[in-house]
């Protein structure tokens, strides 16, 4: 009787290992077949590449920020977009005569690094704490839930500003938390909660599933179960939250820079551009604002849509919800 099922497979006795398709491969296939997702992913990748330019330049011993920042002679107050100086002036100049195009491109670096760093801290932290809370339960769970409820009780933006301010001038182990690292950390501290909550709930669900019971039955230790059975199955939540958190971090960075507590003064960033342009606009200097908002709008849009598609691809169960 058992043979009948085997016969269903045409190449049953070929003797060669048939490669399987993991859920990851499935998700990737779904994603790559999704044209919209791929278009917006391409936009995101363009931004990433732009963001990498200053980094690559610095590897080659060339500081793009200094180059862009170099003093110029003359009054540039009213220099709008022009094609006279080639591509450099295509988006106009700021008050100091620095290319707005350059500023926008360097700002992409800032935004991307903020998005990346904040989430590379927040997501693993949230996942770790969520998995531990969900899997071990009891007192550990109570404590972690208490911690994140506490953080959730303080309005996000206040917490963000407060942390950023608390870090002002604080240097730990040679890292100056008054600058960019503080910003990364502040954004991370305010954004790990969502991941933690989701991962905790998912872990609690997985914990009761039969395959975890089977692993226990085999004599696997708790930590190994967490590592082998729980972690791979909550990983997609981490990836989804990473992509969605990226957008949040970019937006928060702009907001904080607008309040003059984001990136340090002098670092080109979209937030600083908007902050600087805010007063210029009355005088009719729209180009700096427009470039920053435009650049930000496009990347946020691309990330948002790509993130949604990514979620659909990784977690097909949620598809009908959106």
């Amino acid at each position: 009787m058992a043979e009948t099922e085997i016969q269903l497979n045409p190449n049953a006795d070929s003797g060669e290992l048939t490669p399987g398709r993991s859920l990851w491969a499935d998700a990737l296939r779904r994603l790559t077949r999704d044209k919209v997702a791929m278009i917006f992913f391409a936009i995101v990748m363009v931004y990433v590449l732009i963001a990498l330019v200053p980094l690559v330049a610095s590897w080659c011993g060339f500081n793009l920020v200094d180059w862009w920042d170099a003093a110029r002679n003359g009054d540039f107050r009213d220099h709008g977009p022009t094609l006279q100086n080639g591509i450099e002036g295509i988006l106009g100049y700021d008050v100091f005569g620095r290319s707005v195009l350059g500023k926008t491109i360097l700002g992409a670096n800032t935004s991307m690094s903020v998005g990346f760093m904040a989430n590379i801290i927040a997501v693993p932290l949230g996942m770790l704490l969520g998995a531990i809370a969900g899997y071990y339960g009891g007192k550990v769970d109570d404590f972690i839930v208490w911690v994140y409820t506490t953080f959730a009780c303080v309005p996000g933006i206040i917490l963000l500003i407060a942390i950023k301010f608390a870090f002002k001038g604080v240097t730990i182990l040679g890292v100056d938390f008054g600058g960019m690292p503080g910003l990364y950390l502040a954004l991370a501290v305010t954004s790990w909660i969502g991941t933690c909550r989701l991962v905790r709930a998912e872990t609690m669900r997985l914990r009761e599933l039969d395959y975890v019971q089977a692993a226990r039955c085999c004599g696997r230790g708790r930590f190994m179960i967490l590592l082998k059975h729980i972690a791979p199955n909550v990983m997609h939540i981490g990836i989804i939250n990473f992509s969605l958190g990226f957008v949040g971090a970019i937006q928060s960075e702009v907001m904080l820079s607008f309040l003059d507590i984001g990136v340090p003064a002098g670092t080109p960033s979209w937030g600083n551009m908007i902050s600087a342009a805010d007063k210029d606009l009355i005088a009719g200097h729209w180009w700096q604002l427009a470039s920053a908002v435009g650049a930000m709008f496009l990347v946020v849009l691309a990330w948002n849509i790509f993130g949604d598609r990514l979620r659909d691809a990784l977690d097909p169960k949620l598809k009908n919800a959106g």
């Binding site: 399987g20 993991s22 859920l23 990851w24 599933l209 039969d210 395959y211 019971q213 089977a214 692993a215 039955c217 085999c218 004599g219 696997r220 082998k228 059975h229 791979p232 199955n233």
Partner: peptide, 27 residues
């Protein structure tokens, strides 16, 4: 644990979807 094993009711949830059959059986 080596000598006492279990077969579960729901074949869908008793196998880790992220592991290959080989790894599941070899656990």
């Amino acid at each position: 644990r080596q000598k006492m094993q279990m077969i579960f009711q729901d074949p869908a949830s008793s196998l880790n979807p992220r592991m290959t059959v080989g790894n599941i059986v070899a656990e």
